[in-house]
């Protein structure tokens, strides 16, 4: 009920988080959008963390190699898997949104979604296996 506006006042926007992420009764594309936004936030945080971690390289071999050792810890690898999922999903859905959003193939946006996300999932599984075995 919280997203209904019992008022005759001009439209009052509701909490955006609910609007973006409440996917109950919504279609596949809203789910895709919500996931895209979620992965976007994750990847943005990661990008800047990644950039700052790289500064360890300038400080010399010790700091970097101790970081590499830490990064090989299974818990860290698990985070890598989560990251990988974010990357491949955001990539696949991003390609769809970019194409469809420019009016390319928008009539078949659902097929595009399933094909691209399908490919992404395969890449994800392969990548995840590689992360743990590689």
């Amino acid at each position: 009920m919280d997203d209904i506006q019992p008022t005759t006042d001009p439209v009052r926007p509701k909490a955006p988080l609910r609007s973006w992420f409440d996917v109950r009764g919504r279609s596949m594309s809203t789910l895709a959008f919500a996931l895209n936004r979620l992965t976007a936030v994750g990847l943005t945080i990661y990008l800047f963390l990644h950039l700052s971690v790289l500064s360890l390289l300038v400080r010399g071999p010790e700091s970097w190699d101790s970081f590499v050792a830490l990064a090989k810890h299974p818990l860290f690898l698990l985070l890598d898997v989560v990251l990988l999922f974010g990357v491949v999903y955001h990539m696949a859905n991003g390609i769809r949104v970019a194409l469809v959003g420019m009016g390319v193939g928008h009539a078949r946006h659902k097929t595009l979604f399933y094909v691209l996300v399908g490919i992404a999932l395969v890449l994800f599984v392969v990548g995840a296996v590689l992360i743990f075995t590689g």
């Binding site: 390289l57 010399g60 071999p61 970097w64 190699d65 590499v68 990064a71 090989k72 690898l77 990548g127 590689l130 992360i131 590689g134």
Partner: peptide, 14 residues
């Protein structure tokens, strides 16, 4: 991450 053995390069490799 996927070419190098072990997933990450050490300092010299980087």
């Amino acid at each position: 991450h996927f070419i190098v053995e072990g997933g990450l390069r050490n300092y010299q490799q980087v």
